[in-house]
Write a protein that binds this DNA or RNA. Structure first.
Lengths: 233, 233
DNA sequence: AAGTGGTCTAGACCACCGT
DNA sequence: CGGTGGTCTAGACCACTTC
């Protein structure tokens, strides 16, 4: 985070989230941003690309920089490489740990985690609530080689923050397999739904910047309370 | 497409799709690519960023450029700003037009399309099949100001290709609202499912590079045959 | 130590939008 | 026309991996 373009991007993101710019009003030009931050044009453009990728702004040649409608009431905006905790900042969020244990990878898990059978993995099953209502049931595995320690306290707040800020790991990229299916009786109980109700399901495989898998998870979202908003470029 | 970085990216994409590189084997270095394409390092890096965004490759500092597993059997890979037709190239695809008409926007539609009530819109309802099985039921609106002409022949093949290649429009960005819900009796009939079965639903709002909405659509995917793979950075 | 990608700069020229 | 973003270059230095 010490690099210039990330610094510029996070300052601008902060300003945007603070509502310092009006919707659809023109934002500062690249020229003005260069002067303000005392960096080269390329650095400004890199920062703006990040904000564009995250769905905050767009640029129009010959015209300027504009704010995008980057949120919708009642929807969870999913941005690149960012945990749910940050997305839902401002809401009343909590997590109930259903299981947390250290296990050995069997053949199937080893294949998913791209690790050797027998490797140690943390297994965490938790139910995440927003405003007291169950939003998502999550089963996650973390490779102990990448994440040497985890406990309930961390799992109850933000695992993502712990991994990036405390462990200083850099998340590289992720596969997200998105589909829907009918809930089992047991999963339905957790989400306060009944067997056969639909569920939005996301299977994540998350890689560090080195290309190593450190996390695999299965998320089952409550079908009527979860609407995910992806802002793509 | 005449610009250098897009040219480099599409040549490399073509090579990757042709299988010219082995999985997880190292690809050429930036140095080698600069020599091969006779362009500057920044241009190579821009091309590689595109391929990385599309999920094809990743780079590791100090190490090199690597191929990612960019597809999974039985899954539809969704990439930035690309129609289904290109994604499913190689499969047996067809579309059945259920409705195609020119209508006037009512207040609700005008709000969604960010246009004035009474503006002319093309409405298209079609069912898209893969290998003879229904995959997705789609209801789409196109602003006639942006897309002055549409017919069944175009709608039966690829609207996306028509818009970018023939009309020379540039797609800028899109909002995708993803959720699931129970199917109605009528929608279930189209997808060969029954009332109450789950459906993966995506509501798209697609903008031109000028920030103008040109398309809004509602896609209802068959829950057991559609698994969407998003490769995110 | 050598090789590789990551960051940053300064400057040039082009394409498009608005007046 | 002036203002704005879009493309491209050449070069420098840093950070990390690999041997």
């Amino acid at each position: 985070m010490t690099v210039k373009y990330q610094m510029v991007a996070s300052v601008l993101e902060h300003d945007i989230l603070q509502g310092k710019f009006q919707a659809d009003e023109k934002l500062p030009t690249e020229e003005e941003l260069m002067r303000k931050f005392q960096v080269s044009r390329n650095t400004i453009r890199r920062a703006l690309n990040i904000l564009a990728d995250q769905g905050y702004v767009y640029q129009v040649q010959g015209s300027g920089l504009f704010l995008r409608e980057f949120s919708r009431p009642g929807c969870i905006t999913i941005r690149k490489m960012q945990g749910l905790t940050k997305e839902l900042a401002g809401h009343d969020m909590s997590s109930q740990i259903i299981d947390l244990s250290l296990i050995k990878a069997n053949d199937e898990l080893a294949k998913k985690m791209r690790c050797a059978p027998g490797d140690s993995l943390y297994f965490i099953k938790r139910l995440r609530f927003v405003n007291g209502e169950p939003l998502v049931l999550e089963e996650a595995y973390y490779n102990k080689k990448a994440v040497p320690y985890l406990n309930a306290e961390i799992a109850q707040t933000s695992i993502y923050r712990y991994i990036t800020d405390d462990l200083k790991l850099k998340v590289g990229f992720a596969d997200k397999l998105i589909y829907c299916d009918k809930l089992s009786k047991e999963d339905g109980d957790h989400l306060k739904l009944i067997e056969g109700d639909p569920a939005l399901i996301i299977e994540n495989t998350v890689f560090l910047n080195t290309g190593v898998v450190f996390n695999v998870s299965l998320e089952k979202y409550h079908y009527s309370s979860a609407k995910l908003l992806a802002l793509t470029f």
